[in-house]
Each structure stands twice: as structure tokens, then as C-alpha cells.
């Protein structure tokens, strides 16, 4: 009985929060709704006796991944808001048709099937020891491939999001000297003039902002 109540509450919360992700205009609220969705899914994993996966879901997903999302949304600020523009009606209609189609497809497939009660499992099912043993035993190749994938993704993320390296100062020791084109002669003269009078501290940020864009 408790099982059924927990299932109904968790699935209702999961579906409502998923709708919140898809329908809310503000990306910040979308991300917060997704956290609710992930936590209710973790409760359903617990119902399915997958303790370790539920813990990983909360720690990795609702913790680490969502923090990354929220950081990027905060970094973008108001630019993360969706541009207001009416979308063509066939886009909405097509999306609804596709969504209903997949639900109907799975519904019919499940309806046809006479599911029994499922296998009876011991308490060790889904325990960290068992998962670890299968990762380092039968699925060791998958495990290693996943580690390579994560390394590639980390390098790719840094490469995509990194600022371009600032050109080196004169006199700096390095293999490459990047000469930036002089954008404005008068501005350059002003800077030189100012430099003779004041200690001009050039930050990397100011140099980075021009020339890009």
C-alpha cells in the first residue's frame, strides 16, 4: 500500500516538474524544476530496489550537473531568457503529435504484454558491491570507455568555453608572438600618451574584449 502511494506521488511530481521544465519561460525556473524531477525519479529508483543508482542520481545529477547548469544560467544573466518570437503553428502541432505518438506506442506495447510480478531478487540487488563487481568484471570495457569519454568531454568543454589566450607582452618569453592589428591610430596614440604620464595597468580582460565579436 505504501509502495503504491509513494509511486503515485513520485510519478505525479516527476511529470509535473517535467512540464515545468518544458513550459516555464525562465531558464532558472526550468533548471529548478529539473532538480525536482531528478529527485522524484530517484525515489522511483528506490522503489525499484536500485539503491546505488538512486544515490548516484541525487549526487551526480541533482548535485553536480545541475550546479553546472545554474552557474551557466547565472553567467548569462538576462541573455539566458528565451527570445520572444511567435513560433509557427506547425512546430507546436508537430511536437504534440510526436510526443503523443511515443506515449501511444509504448502504451500499446505495454498493453499487449502480460507482465508478471517480476523476478524475485535478494536484498543485495542494486547494492554498491554488486554494481562495482559487474563494472570491474563483465562490463570492464564499458567502464574504461566511459572514462575515456569523460576525459574527452572535459577537454572539449574547456576548449569550447575557454577565452582565447591573450597575446604576450613585449619581452615575454614564448614561442609565439601574436601581433594584433592596430584598430585605431588615434586611440593607440592616446594610450601611449597616457602611458607616459600614468602607470597604465592593462588587464587581460580589457584586451580580450576587443577584436572578438
Amino acid at each position: 500500500m505504501t509502495y503504491d502511494v509513494v509511486f503515485v506521488v513520485a510519478s505525479a511530481l516527476a511529470i509535473l516538474s517535467a512540464l515545468g521544465v518544458v513550459l516555464s519561460a525562465n531558464p532558472f525556473y526550468s533548471a529548478l524544476s529539473l532538480i525536482g524531477n531528478l529527485v522524484s525519479l530517484a525515489a522511483m529508483y528506490l522503489l525499484l530496489q536500485s539503491d546505488f543508482v538512486a544515490a548516484a542520481q541525487v549526487i551526480v545529477y541533482a548535485g553536480a550537473v545541475m550546479i553546472m547548469f545554474l552557474f551557466v544560467i547565472a553567467y548569462l544573466g538576462g541573455r539566458a531568457e528565451e527570445p520572444v518570437r511567435s513560433r509557427p503553428w506547425y512546430q507546436t502541432v508537430g511536437a504534440i503529435i510526436a510526443a503523443v505518438a511515443i506515449v501511444a506506442e509504448v502504451g500499446f506495447a505495454v498493453e499487449e504484454q502480460a507482465f508478471g510480478n517480476g523476478a524475485s531478487v535478494s536484498d543485495a540487488f542494486g547494492a554498491p558491491q554488486v554494481i562495482g563487481a559487474s563494472f570491474l568484471g563483465r562490463y570492464v570495457l564499458t567502464f574504461e570507455a566511459t572514462s575515456v569519454l569523460l576525459l574527452i568531454a572535459a577537454v572539449g568543454g574547456v576548449t569550447l568555453a575557454a577565452r582565447r589566450p591573450a597575446p604576450r607582452e613585449e619581452g615575454a618569453i614564448g614561442a609565439f608572438e601574436i601581433q594584433r592589428p592596430v584598430t585605431s591610430i588615434s586611440l593607440q596614440a592616446d594610450v601611449v600618451d597616457a602611458e607616459t604620464r600614468f602607470d597604465v595597468v592593462r588587464t587581460g580582460r580589457a584586451r580580450d574584449e576587443d577584436g572578438e565579436g
Binding site: V21, E82, A95, A98, A99
Partner: peptide
């Protein structure tokens, strides 16, 4: 849930 996600991918622009 999959259908809801699909709807979001089709309709949102951000």
C-alpha cells in the same frame, strides 16, 4: 516523461 522532453526539444529555442 520522454514525450514531455520531446515536446520541449521541438518547441523551445533557448
Amino acid at each position: 516523461l520522454f514525450g514531455i522532453g520531446l515536446y520541449g526539444v521541438f518547441t523551445r529555442r533557448s
